[in-house]
Structures are given as structure tokens and as C-alpha cells.
């Protein structure tokens, strides 16, 4: 049976022979996953899409240099995450705020409204505020469902380090969400009655 790696390598061989249909197929396979991961990293959809486009452009430019001893997915994720890290570094260096940015982040402004928030929204906000190294490992492992081995290859760190970072990220999230989680736990045990708010 053909594995994901075999399919990717088959596509890459065709791309190396300037088969653009194969490149389009590769884009279809990875674009949504990459946009999702980079969105979680950057918290900005347009930037995430731009960087994913840049990733595919680099894959196309350097298609002849691809080393078939590695997983294609690892190569693509490494390019995308390096671009995201550079972008985060650049943002940190030139940190400024503008009204246009705030308007663009309509979802975030909506989230700041007072009132009860769902656990999912709180979780998304908590993921966004994780330190980069924990967030990267957590997003790849728990959001994008990659194996620990793949995450270790992409981040170029030992397997144990990845497990430790994912565990640390989960612990941070658990602390952030503790009040909400406690509320749900009480509800599940029947000790709290849900109150419908207007």
C-alpha cells in the first residue's frame, strides 16, 4: 500500500519534471493544513496565507534541490515555520499598533466583549498567548495531529524535547482554563446548575 511519503515523493518527482498539475496537487494536499498552523502561530489570517504562498513558491523555486531521503511534508513544514518565526521576530522588533490592525482583527475585538465566553474561544485565545516554542510544538502535535517524530524532525530538536514542550504547553493551557474547566467539571458531576444568561 502506498504511504503518504510515497505519494509525496511521486508528486515531487513529477514536479521536478516541470509537471505543474503535480504541483497543484501538492498545494491542494497541504495548503489548508499549513494555513491553519500558521494562523495559530501568527493570529492573522492574511499573513498566514501570504506566508503559505511564499512557502509553496520556495518549494517550486527549489524543487530540483529536494533531497528524497527526507519527508516532503517535513521539508514544507520547516520552510513554513521558519518563515513564521522570522515574521514573529520582525513583529517583535518593529512592534507598533494601528487602528487598521485592530479593525482587521474583528474576531479579537468581539472576544473582548464582557459576558460568558465558550471554552473553545478561551482555549483559542490561550493558544495564541503561549510562548512561541511551546506553541509551535503544541500546534503541530495537537492541532495538526502530526506524530512526535515528525514534529521533532520539523523543529530539529530531540523527541524528548518535543514531548516536554507539548506537555508544558498543555500544562499552561490547563492553568489558563482552570476556572472554566472547573465549572464544566462541576456541571458534569451535577453539583452546579447551568444558568442561561441573556
Amino acid at each position: 500500500m502506498e504511504t503518504q511519503k510515497d505519494i509525496d515523493h511521486g508528486l515531487m518527482r513529477r514536479i521536478q519534471q516541470d509537471d505543474f498539475a503535480a504541483f497543484e496537487e501538492l498545494v491542494e494536499r497541504y495548503k489548508d493544513r499549513l494555513v491553519n498552523v500558521l494562523f495559530r502561530m501568527l493570529n492573522e489570517r492574511n499573513e498566514a496565507e501570504d506566508l503559505v504562498q511564499e512557502t509553496f513558491l520556495r518549494v517550486y523555486k527549489h524543487r530540483q534541490e529536494y533531497d528524497f531521503t527526507y519527508c516532503l511534508s517535513t521539508w514544507i513544514y520547516t520552510i513554513a515555520l521558519n518563515l513564521a518565526k522570522n515574521e514573529l521576530r520582525r513583529k517583535k522588533k518593529f512592534k507598533f499598533f494601528s487602528l487598521f490592525d485592530l479593525q482587521a482583527k474583528g474576531v479579537e475585538l468581539e472576544d473582548t466583549k464582557p459576558g460568558p465566553q465558550s471554552l473553545k474561544i478561551i482555549l483559542e485565545k490561550a493558544i495564541a498567548t503561549l510562548p512561541v516554542k511551546y506553541k509551535t510544538a503544541f500546534v503541530l502535535r495537537d492541532v495538526d495531529q502530526l506524530s512526535y517524530e515528525e514534529v521533532a524532525q520539523i523543529l530539529e530538536v530531540p523527541l524528548g524535547t518535543v514531548k516536554s514542550r507539548v506537555n508544558r504547553a498543555r500544562a499552561i493551557l490547563k492553568d489558563e482554563l482552570r476556572p472554566k474547566l472547573e465549572e464544566r467539571r462541576a456541571l458534569s458531576k451535577g453539583t452546579l446548575v447551568p444558568v442561561r444568561t441573556m
Partner: peptide, 29 residues
């Protein structure tokens, strides 16, 4: 209690909204 928290976080993370590329992504690329 911690076990409950961990399983909740795992479950909620799996249900986090998946952001997809826009329709004109391929054209722009």
C-alpha cells in the same frame, strides 16, 4: 481532577475551528 482537565483540553483542541485557505489561494499562487 487533573486527568479531567487534560482530557477536556485534548477534546476541545481537536474541536478548534480549522482555518482553511481562501478560494482564490491557488490563483494568487
Amino acid at each position: 481532577r487533573e486527568a479531567f482537565y487534560f482530557s477536556e483540553i485534548k477534546g476541545q483542541t481537536a474541536g478548534v475551528e480549522k482555518i482553511r485557505a481562501r478560494a482564490d489561494f491557488n490563483l494568487r499562487l
